[in-house]
Write a protein that binds this DNA or RNA. Sequence first.
DNA 1: GATGAATGAGTGTTCATTCAT
DNA 2: AATGAATGAACACTCATTCAT
Lengths: 207, 207, 207, 207
Amino acid sequence: MIEFNDKQILILQIAEKLFAENGFDGTSIRDIARDANVNIAMISYYFGSKEKLLERLIFFRSQDLRIKLKNLFEEAIDPIQKIEKFIEYYIEKIDSNRNMYQILHFEITNKRRAMDLEAFTEVKKGNLQILEKIINEGQQQKCFKTNIQVPLITPTILGTYFNFVTNKPFFENILGLDSEDKFNSYIKNELTNHIKQTIKSLLIYEN
Amino acid sequence: MIEFNDKQILILQIAEKLFAENGFDGTSIRDIARDANVNIAMISYYFGSKEKLLERLIFFRSQDLRIKLKNLFEEAIDPIQKIEKFIEYYIEKIDSNRNMYQILHFEITNKRRAMDLEAFTEVKKGNLQILEKIINEGQQQKCFKTNIQVPLITPTILGTYFNFVTNKPFFENILGLDSEDKFNSYIKNELTNHIKQTIKSLLIYEN
Amino acid sequence: MIEFNDKQILILQIAEKLFAENGFDGTSIRDIARDANVNIAMISYYFGSKEKLLERLIFFRSQDLRIKLKNLFEEAIDPIQKIEKFIEYYIEKIDSNRNMYQILHFEITNKRRAMDLEAFTEVKKGNLQILEKIINEGQQQKCFKTNIQVPLITPTILGTYFNFVTNKPFFENILGLDSEDKFNSYIKNELTNHIKQTIKSLLIYEN
Amino acid sequence: MIEFNDKQILILQIAEKLFAENGFDGTSIRDIARDANVNIAMISYYFGSKEKLLERLIFFRSQDLRIKLKNLFEEAIDPIQKIEKFIEYYIEKIDSNRNMYQILHFEITNKRRAMDLEAFTEVKKGNLQILEKIINEGQQQKCFKTNIQVPLITPTILGTYFNFVTNKPFFENILGLDSEDKFNSYIKNELTNHIKQTIKSLLIYEN
DNA sequence: GATGAATGAGTGTTCATTCAT
DNA sequence: AATGAATGAACACTCATTCAT
């Protein structure tokens, strides 16, 4: 495991913010160097290249992004509550790493980034397995219906969240969320709740 | 209404493809010129600037994007069927303009693009109103539940779709969609159906 | 003698104005075409090139610039009056072609313009000869001193005028010439008179 | 006070030469880079932009251009000698910065350059005041006439010089100055003397 | 280990000019 | 005779990166 020193971490943090705001191409290493108050050459010196900085940034955050939900499965609550908690934790985790996910969402999926995202694929698969376990359990307990396309659950959870966040100005407008706090609070409460209801309905009711 | 000549349309098409693949900043006018087999100066000559090319591209596609669902509301089918058709049409329309939506999704929401997207906001609002009408109708006919957060329905529809498309490689992998056709077919059938089920469950069942 | 048609003359006039204001390099043929309300291709079509347009412009104006002072020499007035009239006519002529002289002054003297200015050299030489004649006459009549560097007289006349015009803002400021009319009137009266006094003093008084 | 390093000074010197010869617009940063044997990017790197290079160039030379003639006024010589020295120093100073003055003369006075020339206006005003003092002194000592337009003296001094220099080829031709040395020597001796005579005559003799 | 200086490659854009019609 | 369409060359400038120290 490679360690980062303080200056490297500062650079990573600034880079994360700027990449999220302006995109990878829209952010120059000069911007990063200026905001981080370090020499331009530092970025290449520490990380080799801008591209590798992005890689290291993803690596740096990857632990945060590895959402551990295993304990959740062990908890003595019913499957419905597990699903609710799964969603709650998931959204919360993503929302607290909004910048990083923005970057992953926007930059990495592009053809141009030949980046090793195996780690994330594994995380995704892991989370999917946890979800599968919960759903299987619910199906066995007859509280969930039988024909469920499990792999399409997460796109609905994450997609709803991302679409909301991505269209921030639109929803601020039509929902009257005139402050950052209100917007964040809406995500934490109403939006999360909406997603819970959506998934629960889908899992429970036959139609 | 401004008309585009053949060469302009060619440039717009190439630009659309490249912007979707590599992003706006990741695409140089030289790339566009090369792929479109036109002189570099043509882009500036025809569109004034790269930025304006993007504007014109959005304008060029915006007609297609104006999803006409009004007739749908008039049809003599029950609200549930209307919702199903609404989703079907919506996904179909977006999917046929996948590149354009990718661009909108990636570039426009960024802080750096100060672009006039009023037209789209209007389209979104229009679609939202149609959805509201359908849902109201369904509520009056007692086939939908009463407490529904209508503005959060579309994020779920679109978000699910986009999350799926954005994570194409991941889903190709876990779903065994080993050809372009299979992937597209999956969207048209399974994914669309999943979204229909999701929304219908949400609208119908109280929990 | 080549004739110019109306459109050509219009182009020449617009070009003259713009060249004087913004310099040759600072003026694009697009600027000229726009202001003259003609097609861009017209300039090259009519004049062959931008450079040749300048040549034709100089040729076009050169007749105006051929200051006819021969008659002046024949007039039955004393040499001092002839000198005064010479200066008066000279300044008047140049001032009425201020734009053209500005161009000549700024562009032609540059190394980069390998332009045929023979015509002008001839005009200058012609004027110099007239001046020499007048001065010789004055010397014979004992009203002018004998040791006079005739070729340096015109630099003083023209240089004083051009330096004044070139530093327009400075002199407007310190002389309180707060309108175009006042500035022009100052040239016609005070400045011209100053030049007359200067040259007369130089020609008359031994020191 | 900002310091310039050797390479910056080299660039400034080359730029000065080229701007004087070909004008600002007529000189590309490629030309400068080539002649100075530095990378093109260096100009932007060191000076920010071509425009700012010009600004720095003017700043760089501005000390040289601040002609100090105050001591002259204190010298124990008569006003006529002071005027002679004033002219001699002035011409000498300008001639040793011929390139720089050419640039100022040609580029700055143009409408298109919105450059801060306040410093120069101040210098001009300062020199004007010194001249006024000398002339006032001369008038009090009855060696100068009373009705003198002081602000028009400098245009005659500078204008004569510039007109001569600007029409170099013409005067080389008619005066037979077939070498650089002869031309420079002519300025230093005959031309300077001509200007001295001119101004002295103007100041002394009533007509 | 850290950095100021420097650079080649690339950017979007503008230019005068040409050419088919 | 006249022009709209088109183009290659050049422009100023920014980029990520390298390198000597």
